[in-house]
Design a binder for these strands. Structure first.
Length: 853
RNA sequence: GCGAGCGUGGCGAAACUGGUAGACGCAAGGGACUUAAAAUCCCUCGGCCUUUGGUCAUGCGGGUUCGACCCCCGCCGCUCGCACCA
């Protein structure tokens, strides 16, 4: 009997896989179906952490399982390698961002390889590789030609710490998503991608993504924020600034037009600005509005305030009516037209405003059953009902009135039905060095000219300095000075680089043939896309996943590939969390320095190095700041990769967070030993008895069924629990014959292979099987063996279990009923409560319930 | 405020489609082996009671059903996302 030693076995098996080039993706006509498994590729920060490990292990389980099921599997890995941290390192430590990034990649690649993942490393690339970003520049120019890229001066979100522009998606609570700095507004000329052209399609497409979490689809739909209604023009009266003879509003409630009591303008609406030019009062009011912060709390508390401009607007459906024009702080210039008409009776914000400034509240929708005198007090009525007080719209329901009102507005030439979106075009210019250069040359005479194809890639210059803030490309002595490709005159290279989210918006397509001349090889893309199973953190639910869906559509429309949705299946996994420990001085203490002593249900923590008592804090995401990090390498050293892989999947459902505990990984390690013990003690010549052999066979087939269902349903924790139980069963059948035990162990080796691949190979070899378990087919179960011939049926009386009866499977109902009624435990109970049976419910092969009284 | 999800032992969690609640693991307690420890193995492990049994128990209160962790109604709590979106 030998002890299993992962420290020798695991490297031995990895060397075997490597020597056999086992994970190189099959190419050419194999006749097998394809399966593309992808985990969101990592940013090369320098270290693989537990969260990465769990993510990649999940993908690996899927990849290995699909391979065993006979699929050709594509399972690649690469690096999302551009971005700010490399430049920060350059500024702090004087290293070049490229050197820093590439050495991180080398370190992380080595760490990843220790995890025994079935990755095709021959397809590896980093987005900072000119061979990759040059192709990105090529399709960028393609999209430019198709009008999907444009340049515009606009107000941008400026991150004063990172010294760059941020997309709307990258501003969270008014702060930069990376730096946390309060975002400033700044006017800049920027490159934009026309994602709004695809707004409708991106919403519609969500419906087809039936293997995405509902939550992510909802988040995307909300982000795009489509709403349908109408644009309505209100002619203005009074002392109107020139050029503003009317104002256009957007509304989703054209049915309530007759309930209008004022027209409202955003403080930064052009008309507001024009009014401010001649009225210092208005200017002061607008300044007041801008004071408020953008944070949640500030918006919650912000009071609705307004300023009466003195202008009036003529009602578009009734020229005899006019309403006042106000500037109000709660109107957003970025949404719709930046102007509204207010119907206080049927909109809470409008109502609050109207009450405050004593404006009329005119109800025009009344719920069924309400009379002519229907009125609202402090709560706007937003429900369904019939229109009244509204001329010829009277009597219509809300939906019909919307249509009728739009038709009338259109007939009057004062507007039309319209759909607006919350989604804005994607600003992709970043004033940074470490990114993909935007392949454009600016010429005085010709304007912005794309870099000709034969001059791609536009490579980043290596000789740059980071000693002063700002973009090093901008101050590089020679790089930006070029000739205009069109007229030959002196011209200037674009020095902005692309948002790194562009890099990750198409890498999954490049993986299908990373050496292709074209950005995407169509045949390879058609073979492999869409990604069948994409796995990553839910934090990418909007940004990355929305951008990738957009770019996929744009590139397909440009003829570069032929899929619409990049990710057919999406799984968002939970994080790895750990307890935190705090010393009396408030400093966090790392787990390796903590000794936990349990006394019954109470646990106390002591610091090993000093002996002081620690406070056990919350269970939180592993982070350097809380020092609650457990490095994968340490675990692999102590328990082996397989135990670590098993544990990160065994303790919680994959979509939920898993709490890292030493005890847990020790348990997994014990399981690894128990598995080995069964194989190591295997004696093929052993004779057993027929009943025991049969029992083991049944258990084997039941285990195959349960584990297969667990793996397929992404219930890895449940699958692993079944494996634990199966090993206990095998052990309990130690006296079964060699043949039955071989069947059980052969199945076990293949069932554990996705989770603990090294151990599985060792076991497979110990069984004397040829080749690698990696290539062995996934075991099938015999349906006849997973159902028992005899069943123990519980007998309930009034819903409480009072006894049980053993019956043959499929026993006729009256026979079951007889047996249940004759059951001694049942009889005894009925006597003790002096009740008799009134009714018998038999659920075949399940349960019997006696209704007694 | 709007939307989504969740709430089960000391802890992580199981429970297929409404059919024996707590599988599996951790922690804990007891025992075997050992000079001792580690490792390993065996037993106990939701609460209470008169313990071969009874009774209560899946956040709380109702309901539907022969039967509810599961379905319905109303609360409470937690987590996530969005947020003055017209």
């Amino acid at each position: 009997m030998t002890r299993y030693d992962p420290r020798t076995a695991e490297p031995r098996q990895r060397a075997r896989w490597e020597a056999a080039k086992a994970f190189v993706t099959p190419t050419g006509e194999t006749g097998r179906p394809k399966y593309y498994v992808l985990e969101m590729f990592p940013y090369p920060s320098g270290n693989i952490h537990m969260g990465h490990a769990r993510n990649y292990v999940m993908g690996d389980v899927v990849a290995r399982h699909k391979r065993a099921q006979g699929f050709d599997v594509l399972h690649p890995m690469g690096w999302d390698a551009f971005g700010m941290p490399a430049e920060n390192a350059a500024m702090e430590r004087g290293v070049h961002p490229g050197d820093w990034t590439w050495s991180n990649i080398a370190a992380m690649r080595d760490q990843l390889k220790l995890l025994g993942l079935s990755l095709d490393w021959s397809r590896e690339f980093a987005t900072c590789d000119p061979a990759y970003y040059g192709k990105q520049q090529a399709w960028f120019i393609e999209l430019l030609k198709r009008g999907l890229v444009y340049r515009k001066e606009g107000v941008v979100n400026w991150d004063p710490v990172d010294n760059t522009v941020l997309a709307n998606e990258q501003v969270i609570d008014g702060r930069g998503w990376r730096s946390g700095a309060e975002v400033e507004k700044k006017k800049l000329t920027q490159w934009f991608l026309r994602i709004t052209d695809y707004a409708d399609d991106l919403v519609e497409g969500l419906a087809s993504l039936d293997r995405w979490p509902e939550k992510v689809r909802l988040m995307q739909a909300n982000w795009i924020g489509r709403s349908t209604g109408a644009r309505v023009t209100w002619p203005l009266k009074g002392d109107v600034p020139s050029g503003f003879e009317s104002v256009e509003v957007f509304t989703t409630r054209p049915d309530t037009l007759y309930g209008a009591s004022f027209v409202g303008l955003a403080p930064d609406h052009p008309l507001s600005a024009a009014i401010a030019q001649r009225s210092s009062e208005a200017a002061a009011f607008i300044a007041e509005c801008k004071k408020g912060g953008a944070s949640q709390a500030e918006i919650d508390q912000a009071e609705k305030i307004g300023f009466d401009t003195g202008l009036t607007a003529i009602h578009p459906l009734d020229p005899t009516r006019t309403v006042p024009v106000w500037i109000a702080n709660f109107i957003l210039s970025e949404y719709g037209t930046g102007a509204i008409f207010a119907c206080p009776a049927h909109d809470q914000r409008d109502l609050d405003f109207a009450r405050k400034y004593d404006l009329p509240v005119i109800p025009v929708v009344r719920p069924d059953g309400a009379g002519e005198d229907f009125a609202v007090a402090d709560e706007a009525y937003v429900g369904p009902g019939r229109i009244f007080n509204s001329a010829d719209l009277d009597g219509l329901d809300v939906e019909a009135a919307k249509k009728a009102a739009v038709a009338r507005i259109e007939a009057a030439g004062l507007g039309e039905g319209a759909t607006v979106y919350r989604l804005r075009d994607w600003g992709v210019s970043r004033q940074r060095y470490w990114g993909c250069p935007i392949p454009i040359i600016h010429c005085e005479a010709c304007g912005p000219v794309p870099v000709p194809a034969d001059q791609l890639p536009v490579e980043l210059p290596k000789d740059v300095t980071f000693d002063v803030p700002g973009n090093p490309l901008d101050r590089h002595p020679t790089w930006k000075h070029v000739k205009c490709p069109s007229c030959g005159a002196d011209a200037r290279r674009e020095t902005d680089t692309l948002d790194t989210f562009v890099d990750s918006s198409w890498y999954f397509a490049r993986f299908t043939d990373p050496t292709a001349d074209a950005p995407i090889d169509k045949a390879a893309a058609n073979r492999w896309l869409p990604v069948d199973q994409y796995i990553g953190g839910v934090e990418h639910a909007i940004l990355h996943l929305l951008y990738a869906r957009f770019i996929t559509r744009a590139l397909s429309d440009a003829g570069l590939m032929e899929v619409k949705e990049p990710f057919a299946g999406l799984f968002t996994q939970g994080m790895v969390v750990h307890e935190t420990y705090k010393a009396a001085d408030g400093k966090w203490v790392e787990p390796t320095d903590v000794e936990i002593v349990a006394d019954g249900d109470r646990r106390t923590a002591t610091r090993r190095s000093t002996g002081e008592t620690l406070t056990i804090g919350d269970i939180e995401k592993m982070s350097k700041s809380k020092k609650n990090v457990v490095a994968p390498e340490e675990i692999l050293e102590a328990y082996g990769v397989d135990a670590g892989r098993l544990f990160v999947l065994s303790d919680s459902p994959p979509e939920r967070d898993v709490q890292w505990t030493t005890g847990g990984v020790e348990g997994a390690s014990r399981f690894v030993q128990r598995v080995w013990t069964e194989f190591d003690g295997f004696d093929p010549a052993k004779t057993g008895d027929a009943r025991l052999d049969e029992a083991l066979r049944r258990e084997t087939h039941k285990a195959i069924k349960a584990v297969s269902e667990g793996v397929e349903g992404f219930r890895f924790n449940a699958a692993i629990a079944k494996l634990y139980a199966f090993v206990a069963v095998i052990r309990a059948h130690a006296e079964a014959g060699g043949e039955a035990r071989r069947e059980a162990l052969s199945a076990l080796a293949r069932l554990i292979a996705p989770f603990t691949p090294h151990l599985a190979e060792e076991c497979w070899a110990r069984l004397g099987q040829d080749g690698m378990v990696l290539d062995a087919p996934w075991p099938d179960y015999d349906p006849a063996l997973v159902t028992d011939d005899e069943l123990t049926l519980p007998i309930q009386i009034n819903g409480k279990r009072r006894g049980e009866v053993v019956m043959p499977r499929g026993a006729p109902e009256d026979q079951v009923r007889e047996a249940a009624l004759a059951n001694p435990a049942v009889q005894a109970y009925l006597v003790s409560v002096s009740q008799s049976v009134r009714k018998v419910i038999v659920v075949p092969d399940r349960i019997i319930n006696l209704v007694a009284g």
